[in-house]
Amino acid sequence: MYPSVTPPREVKIGDAAAFAGTTPRAIRHYHQIGLLPEPERGGDGRRRYGYDDMIRLLWIRKMSEAGISLDDMRAAFDEARDIEDVLGRLEETLAAQEADIKRQRAAVQRLRVVGSPLGLLSPLVTGRLSHLPSDALRPSDLDALLVTERILGPLGAAIQASVFITLATDPDLRAEADRLDAADAALDDTVDPHDPQVEELAAQHCAHHKALLQAIEAAGLDADEEKLFEIYDAEASGEEDVQMSAFEAVTKMPYGFSAARTRCMELTAQLLDADLSAGS
């Protein structure tokens, strides 16, 4: 024989929350947004919940588990919106979430395989550099690729990877790059932007850039770059779109370069443009 139990006619908010598998705070929120009608209060000033209230709380719990938003729940209860419209938008949201999860899992797998932060960059960039030894790339190389990917997208960073592949495999070019980096760092705020050394350093940067391009071409990396466009169209179309223009991105990325260093960069760009125009 089971003991005789008389169910209560109404329960307090804590008991209602416990039975429905939610919290009193959530129930109060449902009241505030009109998802659950607020019941009358008892003589002690506390809310009391009856059978119909509990049924709605249980349906809210089920719809929440299915991923239906609170706004859509309210519309469904009020029959103000076609349920097919709600379910259609829910399927779109779930599909997007599923795609995000797939990208996240792929990134984790790349991290495991690569064993360095390189695995966090796009598959197009990671694949391009995967044949290099783990210590061939410097943290500053990865930082540069990270910034380029943000500004120009995966394709731009994958093309830039040719530079780091060349530097990783050509000690002389790497040594010259290090020397130029040190010279750039010496262009602090104490250096006059119109000091002759600024123009001289720009000319050295231009010569180094041309040497890099020659090495890239000799190694056949420029041919690989042409293939990147096909690979990007076929495989990387699911990557997150660049969210701002390159110009806008550059203006939001702080570097804190001195006036002398900024002028050196401008002069280098002018020299490279002049060489490009002369060769065309």
Results as ranks from 00 to 15, higher is better:
residue 4 S to E: 14
residue 24 P to E: 10
residue 29 H to S: 11
residue 29 H to G: 03
residue 30 Y to T: 12
residue 34 G to I: 02
residue 34 G to L: 06
residue 34 G to K: 08
residue 35 L to R: 04
residue 35 L to D: 03
residue 37 P to V: 02
residue 38 E to N: 06
residue 40 E to N: 03
residue 45 G to A: 11
residue 48 R to Y: 06
residue 51 Y to W: 09
residue 52 D to S: 12
residue 60 I to Y: 07
residue 62 K to M: 02
residue 66 A to H: 06
residue 66 A to G: 01
residue 67 G to S: 03
residue 68 I to A: 06
residue 76 A to C: 08
residue 87 L to R: 15
residue 93 T to Y: 05
residue 98 E to Y: 13
residue 104 Q to Y: 05
residue 105 R to A: 07
residue 107 A to Y: 01
residue 111 L to N: 00
residue 113 V to E: 14
residue 114 V to L: 14
residue 121 L to V: 11
residue 121 L to E: 08
residue 122 S to C: 06
residue 122 S to W: 05
residue 126 T to P: 05
residue 133 P to M: 00
residue 136 A to E: 05
residue 138 R to F: 11
residue 138 R to T: 00
residue 141 D to P: 08
residue 142 L to Q: 07
residue 142 L to A: 05
residue 147 V to G: 12
residue 149 E to W: 03
residue 150 R to M: 10
residue 160 Q to P: 10
residue 165 I to G: 07
residue 167 L to E: 08
residue 170 D to Q: 00
residue 180 L to M: 01
residue 180 L to W: 07
residue 182 A to T: 15
residue 185 A to D: 13
residue 187 L to T: 15
residue 198 V to C: 00
residue 199 E to L: 15
residue 200 E to N: 12
residue 205 H to G: 09
residue 206 C to F: 02
residue 207 A to R: 08
residue 210 K to G: 02
residue 213 L to A: 08
residue 215 A to H: 09
residue 216 I to D: 01
residue 224 D to H: 11
residue 225 E to Y: 10
residue 226 E to I: 13
residue 237 S to R: 08
residue 238 G to T: 10
residue 251 T to Y: 10
residue 252 K to C: 12
residue 255 Y to D: 15
residue 260 A to T: 04
residue 261 R to H: 13
residue 262 T to E: 13
residue 267 L to A: 04
residue 268 T to F: 05
residue 269 A to N: 11
residue 276 L to D: 14
